[in-house]
């Protein structure tokens, strides 16, 4: 998301959507839908729930696009945060059965073809956070990744890795501190 040109384009689409430009809003959706759908799907783990999250998120984005200017964050960050928060709100409800990774991918991740917009989003520079993630210890990296990408709670990460809850909490706390140090350096 460090891609300045892309973020500028997205910001322009957002501000046009903020004044009711549906065409700009449709472009914004096309440019970001596949990333955001994937982000949600990994957390909520069921296609129909991820579809619901994406719908609700984009209706919110439409209704609040005019207020985006004050958000002070990059457009993709702003939209991703909306999608992630809605996804996390959903899994806060009775925890969905965790499926075996492999089964999960077979069941849920059959893809539809990517347009050029998607590839553009995919190609953007993400080296900084990647670089910092690589600085984490093995279990720190695993714990932080499971929490972030799969939406697992502390105890779910502990269960998944077969480690005590306290250990996982420490991994995550230290992992986040190290990331912060790296990203702010």
């Amino acid at each position: 998301m460090a891609d300045i040109a892309l973020n500028e384009r997205l910001a322009a689409m957002l501000s046009r959507a903020g004044i009711g430009d549906k065409k700009a809003f449709a472009e914004l959706y096309d440019a970001t839908k596949s990333k955001l759908f994937s982000v949600s799907l990994r957390i909520v783990r069921e296609r129909h729930l991820a579809e619901e999250v994406l719908q609700d998120s984009f209706v919110s984005i439409w209704n609040n696009a005019a207020g985006y200017a004050t958000a002070k964050s990059a457009p993709m960050t702003w939209m991703t945060a909306i999608v992630r928060n809605r996804s996390l709100d959903l899994v806060r409800r009775p925890r969905l059965e965790l499926q075996d990774e492999e089964e999960f991918f077979t069941l849920n991740l059959e893809d539809e073809s990517l347009g050029p917009q998607d590839q553009l989003v995919q190609a953007r520079d993400k080296s900084r956070i990647e670089h910092c993630m690589k600085g984490l210890d093995g279990e720190q990296l695993q714990s932080v990744s499971l929490a972030f990408f799969q939406g697992l709670s502390h105890s779910e990460v502990a269960e998944h890795l077969g480690r005590p809850l306290g250990t996982i909490k420490t991994h995550i706390r230290r992992g986040l501190l190290r990331l912060k140090g790296c990203l702010e350096s």
């Binding site: 994937s38 990994r42 964050s73 990059a74 990408f149």
Partner: peptide, 28 residues
């Protein structure tokens, strides 16, 4: 959010079905 959320960029994109947009369009 500025620190962590860009991590989300690492996920492989998965295109949502067309009906998602249709529903959004109907709602807006």
């Amino acid at each position: 959010e500025a620190h962590l959320t860009p991590l989300a960029d690492l996920v492989e994109p998965i295109a949502p079905p067309r009906r998602v947009w249709n529903n959004i369009e109907a709602r807006i």
